[in-house]
């Protein structure tokens, strides 16, 4: 792995981000939501599912959304081909391209959590879970970005992904019958597992989130191989 190449891609993406008005608003979304929810609490601690709702929005909109758009733009404009034909390896390209997203995700998440109350997440298990969850959304974003052919198409994928994986805690408020199949399925989703981790502290939830992350990595790798060779 070559640090110079990674930092060259990071530097380029950072400059590109400052000139890309389309991406500017995204990191503000979780912060605005956090302000909104914190005013609903009447001074009491917010329930865990609301905190994880903000985590889900941050990870789906900023982490996955950013990566999706950045990768899709590289693919649409053929600049990804320049990177893959250069000595940079797939891992170096992915790390380099993820750094700006990582920076913005955590800046946005920390500000949002400070507004809402970071207390319930200040323990080792929650931190480990949050990091693994971050990688799930990161690879999901990269994979979809490589899968779609245009930036325009990312919107079609981003919305369902945001609702499925980001807004998972909202499913319970949709009045499904207790024990219904829909609720059982959504209970296995990463954000639901993180809420359960906060409730019972079992490592098994981190294991399930890790499986989701491995799935996202495999999806990204398949999409990369598909883009490396023209059909």
């Amino acid at each position: 792995m070559n640090v110079n190449r990674i930092s060259a891609i990071f530097e380029k993406d950072l400059k590109d981000f400052t000139k890309n008005s389309m991406l500017f608003f995204m990191p503000l979304l979780p912060i605005i939501l956090a302000v909104f929810y914190s005013r609903m609490g009447d001074g009491e601690d917010l329930p865990l599912f609301v905190i994880y709702l903000i985590v889900g929005v941050t990870y789906s909109a900023v982490t996955a959304g950013f990566m999706m758009m950045m990768m899709a733009e590289e693919r649409e404009k053929n600049t990804l081909r320049g990177l893959t034909l250069s000595p940079a390896s797939f891992i170096e390209i992915i790390i380099g391209k993820s750094l700006v997203t990582t920076l913005l995700t955590f800046a946005s998440l920390i500000i949002a959590l400070l507004i809402m109350g970071i207390g319930p997440l200040l323990n080792a298990k929650a931190m480990i879970g949050l990091i693994i969850l971050f990688f799930f959304f990161l690879f999901l974003g990269i994979g979809v970005g490589l899968f779609v052919k245009t930036v325009g198409m990312t919107t079609a994928y981003m919305m369902p992904l945001m609702f499925l994986f980001g807004f998972t805690p909202m499913v319970e408020s949709l009045q499904f019958e207790e024990g219904s199949m829909v609720l059982k399925i959504f209970a296995t989703f990463p954000i639901s597992q993180m809420i359960k981790l906060g409730e019972d502290g079992s490592w098994s939830h981190i294991g399930i989130v890790s499986l989701w992350t491995l799935g996202a990595i495999a999806f990204t790798y398949i999409c990369y191989i598909r883009t490396r060779k023209d059909s």
Binding site: N2, N4, R5, S7, A8, I9, E11, K12, K15, D16, K19, N20, K77, N78, T79, R81, G82, L83, S86, P87, A88
Partner: peptide
């Protein structure tokens, strides 16, 4: 292709660094 929003210098700088 080139990165449209960046300058000629920034584009070439990226590839200079990638190729060391």
């Amino acid at each position: 292709a080139l990165y449209d929003r960046l300058s000629v210098l920034d584009n070439l700088k990226l590839f200079c660094k990638l190729y060391e």
